[in-house]
Design a protein around this nucleic acid. Structure first.
Lengths: 247, 247
DNA sequence: CGAGTAAAGGTCAAGGTGACTCTAACGTGA
DNA sequence: TCACGTTAGAGTCACCTTGACCTTTACTCG
């Protein structure tokens, strides 16, 4: 049962955040990468990850790497795929269980950045180590398709948000402008969101309503992978929105 | 880097086939299980699978187990999920990469059945070893949701088929009757199917047209997981339909 | 040869979606 | 202070999809 070279198990995470892009001016997807300090692909950028600790759950291992490399905890965490092709790593065989995570935009700005950790725009990545370019491509595809039939977009935002902010998230992920009126109709009829009764003040123009994520609504995917599939036990952080709110 | 008890990697496969159910009379989903001959859960039924051979691809390992236990080769094979919870196996930790497969109904009848391999109706399973009941539940959910937005239903059929046969597959998977006329309109407008010009003869009533899967149409999911994601290299077997066909 | 039944082609109304218009309500700057 | 620009938010209209249903065609079976 014990082979001479048993496959090694690793856990990696594709972490997405939204940031304003200096070039386009719009919000775009960014992700943190770590520089390889060891021999296979030394010096190249790679997805954060590591060997699977024998006593740690898969999702916990993914969340741990996330916290260690970026100092963030995810609002959304889900298993993406397991990559185990024979040629994907030089030397011994490595099977990587890859997760993908969404973090808040406001938190992503505070995230630790050093010589070995750096954020890149998801559309313009350098050559990565191993098959990580391929993995990111798949994670992007998964995010973009899932945004349209679930409500993961909320994971990029704080506890309360305006419909324009939520629309900005959708537009950034889908890379396409959405009609504000139709977007409002769609979101309101879906029941995924609840009016807090508050409005955002201090902004120019008409003050927008503040909405909250509707927890009592299980309109998301109800796959039999348990309630924590996708939504980590970590509760949403308190609202990070600086502007004051009035009735 | 070498831990005292590194996690062990296994590959299992949930294999679906359609068979007429003696009780209901309709077509229902069946799957083969193997009896445990070793200590954890000895005697209980479990999903076919085994340790990951160090020199074998993940999907190849899944297809191999499938062929060894049932003598069949899949028309459809896709990675389902990786289960790695700490408590899922007594003793050392086991991480299972689970695939799901669809095989032809006509082939499933010829499949090897012995004391240690037996087919069960997917809705009425006994208590299985490990977390395999949970895994089958998830695979069923995945099959039922995926039938509605892709064309995996063809994997249950031969090279040519009538729309009634294709509708039977959908009805069995979805457990709900579909309007024949509306189903025809939906399939024809989707372009997933091509009229062969032949008709099925020898049946009572008006002879139905025979259709063929439209290979040139890439209407399936085009995820960046490569062209063989889901559709194994094995080509579809020659048509197993006994009735003669005329122009 | 008539009866029965499924195949195949159609109609119709309800609901959802995209494109668009109109009014409300704020901050800003002259 | 007040017109202006801009966004929030409500509403309208045409088009397409979908479910329900109807009609005709074409075979086998008794």
């Amino acid at each position: 049962m014990t082979d001479p070279h048993p496959p090694v198990l690793a856990v990696s995470t594709v972490i997405f955040a939204l940031r304003p892009d200096v070039e386009s001016g719009f919000m775009t997807l960014w992700l943190p990468l770590v520089r390889r300090t060891r021999d296979p692909y030394l010096g190249l950028w790679a997805l954060p990850g590591g060997w699977l600790p024998p006593e740690e759950e898969l999702s916990t291992a993914a969340a741990s790497t996330l916290r260690e490399t970026t100092g963030l905890s995810p609002n959304y965490l889900e298993q993406l795929y397991t990559f185990g092709d024979l040629g994907r790593s030089p030397g011994s065989r490595v099977v990587s269980i890859v997760y993908w995570a969404l973090v808040q935009s406001t938190e992503a700005e505070l995230a630790a950045v050093g010589d070995n950790v750096q954020w890149f725009p998801a559309d313009r990545l350098p050559e990565l180590a191993f098959d990580h370019n391929h993995i990111v491509e798949y994670a992007l595809w998964r995010l973009r398709t899932k945004v349209e039939y679930s409500r993961i977009a909320h994971a990029f935002l704080g506890e309360t948000f305006t419909l324009a902010q939520l629309r900005d998230v959708h537009e950034a992920v889908l890379r396409r402008a959405l009609d504000p009126a139709n977007f409002r109709r769609m979101i309101e009829s879906s029941g995924t969101v609840v009016d807090t009764g508050l409005r955002l003040a201090g902004v120019p123009h008409r003050p927008p309503r503040l909405y909250r994520y509707n927890d009592s609504q299980s309109l998301t995917e109800q796959s039999p992978l348990g309630p924590s599939a996708g939504w980590p036990e970590t509760p949403l952080q308190s609202t990070p929105h600086p502007p004051r709110s009035t009735t």
